[in-house]
């Protein structure tokens, strides 16, 4: 599966990218280019379990790992679980659960001014909703936002369910089904 998308650079240029299943070479590039400073700053690397998620997506059907690839270069990552999670609403609808979503370091204005690409997060979130539709879940998507990112999900009109004690009190957000 490969999904072409269009993005805007901060300079206003329109470019084409692809959301594609993550492969080993994407993971290698993320390691090399997104986090080269880890070695320089000698930070612990134990929490970077993207390789584990990549293997999960290759071995278990319910996990899917995607990368937003622009010119062979990863600009965003999305890991989803598609079978076991349920809505936090009482009806407990099935949904696509976003296990992890991230954009490259330079796509945010407080790190790079101006950021390189706009809307990487929006595109990946939109793709998660499309996968939910493909799977018959109507566009329902759930996720736990990290502190500091809640504003993004509020702007994306996700419904806020408050801190989740089962997930370190991270705020849970959910999209309902898309209805005409």
């Amino acid at each position: 599966m490969s999904q072409p998308v269009q993005l805007l650079t901060s300079g206003g240029q329109t470019i084409t990218g692809q959301i594609v299943p993550m492969e080993q070479h994407h993971y290698d590039q993320v390691n090399t280019v997104w986090k080269p400073m880890l070695m320089a700053t000698e930070q612990p690397d134990a929490g970077w379990i993207w390789d584990y998620k990549l293997r999960q997506s290759q071995q278990e059907e319910r996990y899917e790992a995607y990368v937003l690839d622009v010119d062979g270069f990863p600009q965003g990552l999305l890991f989803i679980e598609t079978q076991w999670h349920r809505s936090h609403w009482s009806q407990r609808w099935p949904l696509v659960y976003v296990e992890a979503i991230a954009t490259a370091p330079w796509n945010r204005s407080d790190i790079e001014q101006p950021p390189w690409l706009k809307r990487v997060g929006t595109l990946l979130l939109l793709f998660a909703r499309q996968r939910s539709i493909d799977l018959g879940y109507g566009g329902r998507v759930g996720l736990h936002s990290l502190p500091g990112a809640e504003g993004f999900y509020q702007r994306q009109k996700m419904l806020e369910h408050g801190p989740d004690p089962e997930k370190d009190d991270l705020v849970y957000f959910e999209y309902n089904a898309i209805s005409a």
Binding site: V98, I101, R119, V120, H144, A149, Y153, D168
Partner: peptide
């Protein structure tokens, strides 16, 4: 821009 978007533990 989207700003910080990261989600998931």
């Amino acid at each position: 821009d989207d700003g910080w978007i990261e989600a998931g533990v």
